[in-house]
């Protein structure tokens, strides 16, 4: 079987996979990183969103072998170095942006990509960005609130750092 090597959450990893092994399967079954979820098989739900080379992608619609040499980041790599919740994660808890938690990793990873590109999104921009993430529990109300709040916090931190 072919071998694949990549960096996941800052750690070099490798493993044998089939051609048909998806990135999400490699993460979940190969590496035991079960925070990335599979909620559909038609690439709509976004429960599997991770970052590959800094961009959010659906890990169920990328082959593991296609990520040879890539930098991959998953929900397991989003906490602060001391283990406390990162800004977006903390905002989701603060604003009740999750209920069953299944779509949450994808939501957080998608939100992180948005806030990297757009530090001050409008509520409409947040809602439109989430086109690829389906949540069945929250009605999105508090997810949007959490992302807006996280954006404000991140802007504040940048200001403070200057």
């Amino acid at each position: 079987m072919p071998k694949v090597s990549m960096t996941v959450n800052g750690k070099a990893v490798s493993g044998e996979v089939e051609g048909r092994t998806l990135l999400v399967q490699f993460l979940r079954e190969g590496l035991g990183l079960t925070g990335t979820h599979v909620g559909c098989d038609t690439s709509q739900c976004g429960a599997c969103v991770v970052h590959v080379n800094g961009e959010s992608v659906k890990a169920c619609t990328v082959f593991a072998l296609g990520c040879e040499g890539a930098e991959v980041r998953t929900i397991e790599g989003m906490a602060n170095p001391d283990g406390s919740l990162g800004v977006i994660q903390a905002a989701f808890q603060e604003h009740h942006g999750l209920q069953c938690g299944f779509c949450t990793p994808g939501m957080v990873m998608s939100a992180a990509d948005l806030l990297k590109q757009n530090a001050s999104p409008s509520e409409r921009e947040v809602r439109e960005w989430l086109e690829g993430n389906i949540c069945r529990c929250t009605g999105y109300h508090n997810i949007v609130k959490a992302i807006m709040a996280a954006a404000a916090t991140l802007r504040g931190e940048q200001v403070a750092a200057e």
Partner: peptide, 19 residues
């Protein structure tokens, strides 16, 4: 009160059946 279960769900440490 903020939800205590959120911490595991937000860090990828929830344990769903398929996990």
């Amino acid at each position: 009160s903020k939800r205590r279960e959120d911490v595991r769900f937000l860090t990828g440490k929830g344990q769903y059946t398929d996990d």
